[in-house]
């Protein structure tokens, strides 16, 4: 197969205010079973031979689970197949077509170079409550706290989020509510998550706002591009949890009293 690739280049020189532009590359003799990232690898090998600068992009596991890859392919985060960028294969395209490849477009994800962006804001949302505050040490036997398979499934359906940020890139508002809603749902439906249920949702929502992520206005683009097919129901859960917490949360006991 052969393709024309329109690839976004930015900050690939010394200009700190580089506004970026598309560059066009022709690629030929492409195996239909090659992945799009493998085509970028081949292109980079060619660029090395031609002593041209390689195209920067993130990827790591290349099996759809680490969440590192982060391309906008033909205008859609991860492309039209609703899988990660690394699981996009050339057989999914039409021979001879032009493929446009851009980085994620979101104010909260600044471009580092070409197709690589900084998604540190998502880690900071997790730091604001995306955990159960247990520490390492003896814990109760898990079977002392039974969890029905239905609840486990509900938690797991949300916990499978890979943190790739495609939901943010797809959202016209640049919201991270699918990401945050998934973590809140995972932890707040489990019995272990109950003690911090209210602090968790308030902390994470406030951090989301502080990072500059937008709000949800029900476009539904996030769930449509999510490679893990996380349901938009998690945003409903996030909103309900947040409202309930804001209305009913009692002030915390003085920390000194709980730790002494």
């Amino acid at each position: 197969m052969k393709f024309t690739l329109e690839i976004w280049r930015q900050f690939d020189g010394s200009d700190e205010n580089d506004k970026g532009r598309f560059e066009t590359f022709q690629v030929e003799d492409i195996d239909p079973d090659a992945s799009l990232l493998e085509v970028l690898d081949q292109l980079n090998e060619r660029l090395s031979r031609e002593k041209q600068r390689n195209i920067a992009f993130d990827s790591d596991c290349r099996e759809g689970i680490c969440g590192a890859c982060s391309l906008v392919i033909d205008g859609t985060p991860h492309g039209p197949q609703q899988v990660t960028s690394c699981q996009t294969y050339m057989r999914d395209f039409i021979d001879g077509q032009t493929i446009t490849i851009e980085p994620y477009r979101a104010n909260t994800f600044p471009v580092i170079r070409d197709l690589a962006v900084d998604r540190g804001a998502l880690d900071r949302v997790i730091q604001a409550g995306g955990y159960i505050s247990t520490t390492t040490g003896p814990q109760p036997d898990p079977n002392a706290m039974p969890v029905s398979p239905e609840v486990q499934e509900q938690a797991m359906d949300a916990a499978i989020c890979i943190g790739c940020g495609a939901c943010v890139a797809a959202c016209p508002n640049g919201a991270a509510m699918l990401f945050t809603g998934a973590k809140v749902t995972h932890l707040n439906v489990l019995p272990q998550g109950q003690p911090e249920r209210q602090d968790r949702v308030i902390g994470m929502v406030e951090q989301m706002d502080a990072e500059g992520f937008g709000g949800c206005t029900n476009y539904g683009e996030c769930s449509r591009v999510c490679p893990q097919e996380i349901s938009i129901d998690v945003i409903g859960m996030l909103n309900r949890e947040y409202r309930k917490a804001k209305l009913t949360k009692k002030s915390k006991p003085d920390k000194a009293m709980t730790t002494q």
Binding site: I132, V147, A155, A159, L187, G193
Partner: peptide
């Protein structure tokens, strides 16, 4: 489990 890892049940 204490951290919320949702093992199959």
């Amino acid at each position: 489990v204490a951290q919320g890892v949702p093992f199959n049940r």
